[in-house]
């Protein structure tokens, strides 16, 4: 069962950047990739529960602000120590200029 929630407007996140989105006691990170697509992952790093939205987006990578652990935000794949556990990713859709994520996925 899907549960689509509105996270932000398409213009809210600059290209190659990330934004934090909190909903119902959970926290997510929503990304705008350099090729104009949107993605969403869990908001906290799998290493030490730090908000990834304070990190740096480079191409398809989000780098965690605490210990520079890296993830591919399209797949959630951890790219090396100290980020060793993959991030959970969520489907994203754009409708009427708004970014929605399926938080039930």
């Amino acid at each position: 069962m899907s549960e689509w929630v509105e996270a932000c407007a398409v213009g809210d996140i600059a290209e190659e950047d990330v934004m934090r989105f909190d909903h119902a006691g959970r926290t997510f990170a929503v990304y705008h990739s350099p090729d104009g697509k949107y993605y969403a992952t869990d908001g906290l790093c799998t290493h030490e529960k730090v908000h990834l939205a304070d990190g740096l987006v480079m191409d398809n990578i989000i780098e965690c602000p605490k210990h520079n652990g890296r993830f591919d935000y399209r797949t959630g794949a951890a790219k090396g120590a100290p980020a060793c556990v993959n991030l959970k990713v969520y489907p994203v859709k754009i409708e009427a200029g708004m970014v929605y994520i399926d938080i039930a996925a």
Partner: peptide
């Protein structure tokens, strides 16, 4: 390289 990557992560935490 591995020991010190982890020890330095802890130093930052």
């Amino acid at each position: 390289p591995t020991i010190w990557r982890w020890s330095h992560s802890r130093h930052h935490t």
